Every structure is written in C-alpha cells, then in structure tokens.
Amino acid sequence: MKAATLSRLLAYALAAVWLVNGLYCKVLHLVPRHEAIVARILGPTYAAPLTQLIGLAEMGMAVWVLSGRYIRLNAAVQIGLVAIMNVLEFFLAPDLLLWHRMNSVFAALFIVVIYIYGFGLTLGRKQLL
C-alpha cells in the first residue's frame, strides 16, 4: 500500500474516532460516563456544558484531521491531548473508564497510530509544517 493511501485511510480513521467521541459520546450525551469523568476531574457544577464543549472541540479535531493541513502540528496536538487526558483519567477516574486502568494501553496504541500518521508517513504527501 502506498504511503499516500495509508495516510488517507489513517486520516479517516482518526477523524472517525474524534467525531464519534465528540458527537455521539459527549454532544449527544449517548455515553453518560464521559460527563461523569469530566465531573470527577473538573467538578460537577459545570460538567454538562464542559462535556459538550469538549465534544465540540473533538469534532473540530476531526475536521482538522480531514483538512490535511498542518499534519505534524495536528498529530502533535492529538498526541498531547490524548496523553494528558489519559494520565488524568488514569489517576483521577480509573473506575469510570471502559477498561479501567487498561485504557492506558489502548491510549498508547492510539498515540502510536497518530505518530505514524503525522510523522511516519512522509512519502507521497506534502508536509505543511
């Protein structure tokens, strides 16, 4: 498979993850434990609107991924966000995670995929940053 084709497939997959987590889990509130995690970390007072704002930001990340602009910066931001989010959840809300502390394994694998997308596939596409 050519690097450009793999890059495009990874972009669609990454965008899908951000879109599903943002729209379905947070904005549409179809997975209430996401709001519970936000409440545990940031406090219950504004957990509902903050969860929706986080969801909108995740949807924005999906759009950014699909835009193909500033791929390396985008990958670095994704890696930072996923790492920070998962460290916070690991220590502050492990009981609310789908796979408890094992979520960190899946987060690490997701970070590897993001890294490959952003920094490992340079052939066949123009790097904008």
Rank of each mutant, 00 (worst) to 15 (best):
L53H: 08
I111D: 09
M102H: 14
G118D: 08
L92K: 11
L81P: 00
A13S: 13
Y12R: 08
A4D: 15
L81M: 12
L14A: 09
L66V: 08
V31G: 00
S67E: 13
P49D: 12
N86A: 05
K126N: 09
V113D: 06
P32H: 01
H34G: 01
H34L: 01
Q52A: 10
M1C: 10
A11C: 10
A75Y: 00
A3F: 05
S7T: 10
A4Y: 12
M61F: 14
T5Q: 09
H29G: 00
I114C: 06
S67N: 13
A93N: 11
Y24E: 02
I71C: 02
T51Y: 02
H29M: 10
A48R: 09
A48F: 10
G55N: 09
N21Q: 09
I116M: 14
L9N: 14
F119A: 01
M85A: 15
L128G: 10
I114R: 00
W18K: 07
V27W: 01
A3R: 01
L56F: 15
A13I: 07
A62L: 09
A16T: 15
K2T: 11
I41F: 03
I84C: 12
L23Y: 12
L6H: 05
T5N: 07
A107K: 06
L97T: 05
L98I: 07
T5M: 07
E58I: 05
S104F: 13
S67C: 13
R40A: 14
L56A: 14
L10A: 09
V65Q: 03
R101H: 12
A47E: 08
M1D: 11
L19V: 00
A48W: 10
L53Y: 10
L96G: 02
L123G: 10
L50A: 15
L121C: 07
F90Q: 05
R33D: 01
P44M: 02
A4H: 10
V38G: 08
M1K: 10
R8H: 15
V27L: 08
V87E: 12
A83D: 04
G22C: 03
F106Q: 12
F119D: 01
A62P: 04
L109D: 04
L42P: 02
H100Q: 13
L129P: 04
V105H: 11
M61Y: 10
L53V: 11
V31Y: 09
V65E: 04
L88C: 14
V20R: 03
T51I: 03
I116G: 07
A16E: 01
Y46T: 03
V27I: 14
A75H: 02
L73A: 09
V82W: 14
I54Q: 04
